[in-house]
Structure formats: C-alpha cells, structure tokens
C-alpha cells in the first residue's frame, strides 16, 4: 500500500493528541499544583542545604548543579509520562485512538509532544526558581536551555512511551521507572563533571542523553562552570537531536507494529 503523506492531515492529528495530553493535565487541578510546588520545594531544600557546605570548598557547586537539575526535571517528568499510555489502555481510551483512521505516527508524535510540553513546563518552573538561587546565570541562555530541556523531555517521553507500550500493569511500569531513573541520573554529568569520572562511568555517561543535556544547560546558563567550547556545544546539540529522533522513530515503529497500523 502506498502511504500518501497529507501534511495538514498529519498536523491536525498531532495537534489533537497534543491538545488532549495538555488539556487533560490542566484539568487535573491537584497535579497542576503539585507539579509547580514540588520542583520548587525540592530545589529550595536541596539547594540551600548544598550551598551551606559546598561554597566553603571554593567551588560554587550550586551553580554547577542548577542547570543539571533543570534537565533532571524535564527527564523525570517526561520519562514517567508513559504512564498515561498505560492509563489509556486500562480505561479504554486507547481503543478509541486505535479505531481512528489517523496515521499512527502522527498520533504517537502528538502524544509525545504533549507529554514533553508538560515536562518542559516543569523544568521551566525550576529554571525560574534557579534564577533566585544562582543570580549569576546567563539570562540570554534561558532561551537555549529551554530548547535543550524540550529535547531531553521529548527524548525520554519517547523512551517512556516505548516502554509503556510493552507493559500492561501500572505497578510494573513504576518499578521499571524506579529502577532506571536513578542509574540514568547518576551515570550522567548532572551531579559531577565528566572529567572526574573513571573510564567506565565516563563511557556510560557519554551514551546517556542526559549528559548532553546537562553539559549544554551548563554551557548556556553558567558558562563559568562549563568546560565546553562553542564547537563542542554545537556537536552535543546535534547528538542530542539525533538521539531524540532515533528514539521517537523506534517508538513509532513499535507503535505501528503493535496496533495493526
């Protein structure tokens, strides 16, 4: 069968699914409140505590950490967004999507974009909060960091959704999340510089999209603690885009396969 691509048709489906994910979230008042309060609380408690003992060491650890935390927010929320797919499978909405004549790719992309938008929102709140803790951040850089955070969000939303496709049970999904979030975070350069890692850790970190996110965020937000050159930054950005697109494509492939696309 020849697959004819009708751009406006695809766009409408993408928009529909994006709208659904975002609107549905906004209608859950409790989730909206907690998604605003939680990151701020987290950063407040964590950041202030760190400042106390990190500054005397002669190294502004908070300035180093803050950009990574922005990425962390995009990552954690985006990754777990796959849960919405499991919810839809359980409560029937999934069937409603499957019986539609819409291109599967568009419906999946829309869904991931919607979830990524929500994750971005989360990390943007952190970004604003960071400004209060680390006033020295580069304000112009916020624009670029937002783009990087969106890539991280989309990258992990795609991965989370890919995982969720193969899981029925919400508890199983949460277990998988719990078991992978920590290693992904610690095997990246969110918490410590790549140069300080041993060979194996560094290899793992360089395979981890989060590392590219954290490095780029540092480069744009707090150039003084970044070891990247402009050329490297561009390189990292391209790598992150490629990883994200590849994960999204794999997700689409399996989505088609699993749903008689």
């Amino acid at each position: 069968m020849a697959r004819q691509v009708n751009v406006s048709r695809h766009f409408r489906v993408i928009y529909a699914m994006w709208y659904r994910q975002v609107k549905r979230f906004l209608n859950m008042k409790a989730r909206v409140v907690s998604s605003i309060v939680q990151p701020i609380m987290w950063l407040a408690l964590f950041g202030v505590g760190f400042r106390r003992f990190a500054t005397p060491m002669g190294f502004d650890y908070l300035a180093f950490l803050a950009p990574g935390v922005v990425m962390m927010a995009a990552f954690v929320v985006g990754f777990q967004a796959g849960a919405s797919l499991i919810w839809d499978k359980e409560f029937g909405y999934f069937k409603e999507i499957l019986v539609a004549p819409a291109p599967r790719a568009a419906s999946l992309i829309g869904r991931c974009l919607g979830d990524a938008t929500l994750a971005l929102l989360n990390s943007f709140i952190i970004l604003v909060a960071v400004y209060f803790f680390v006033p020295s951040i580069n304000v112009i850089g916020i624009l670029f960091v937002t783009a990087v955070a969106f890539l991280i969000a989309l990258c992990f939303t795609s991965l989370g959704t890919l995982i969720a496709m193969h899981i029925r049970n919400l508890e199983t999904f949460q277990l998988v999340m719990m078991l992978s979030i920590m290693p992904l975070m610690f095997l990246s350069s969110i918490f410590y510089p790549i140069d300080s890692m041993d060979f194996w850790m560094r290899t793992a970190a360089m395979l981890n999209p989060l590392t590219y996110g954290a490095e780029l965020a540092r480069y744009f937000l707090v150039p003084s603690v970044s070891s990247l050159s402009g050329m490297q930054a561009l390189q990292y950005f391209v790598i992150l885009v490629v990883i994200t697109l590849v994960l999204l494509e794999i997700s689409i492939f399996f989505f088609r396969k699993l749903t008689m696309g």
Binding site: R12, M17, Y19, R20, N27, M28, E96, I97, A102, S107
Partner: peptide, 21 residues
C-alpha cells in the same frame, strides 16, 4: 467506556473530530 474523564464533553468530541481529520 472509552471517553476521557479529565476532558469536558466538548473536548472529547473536539479531539475525536480532529483525529478524524
């Protein structure tokens, strides 16, 4: 039931309509 409980009736129809082109 296959509606989205966290969308209004209108939005449920809107999303469906857009998905159907």
């Amino acid at each position: 039931r296959t509606v989205d409980g966290y969308l209004s009736g209108w939005d449920n129809l809107k999303v469906h309509g857009l998905v159907y082109g």
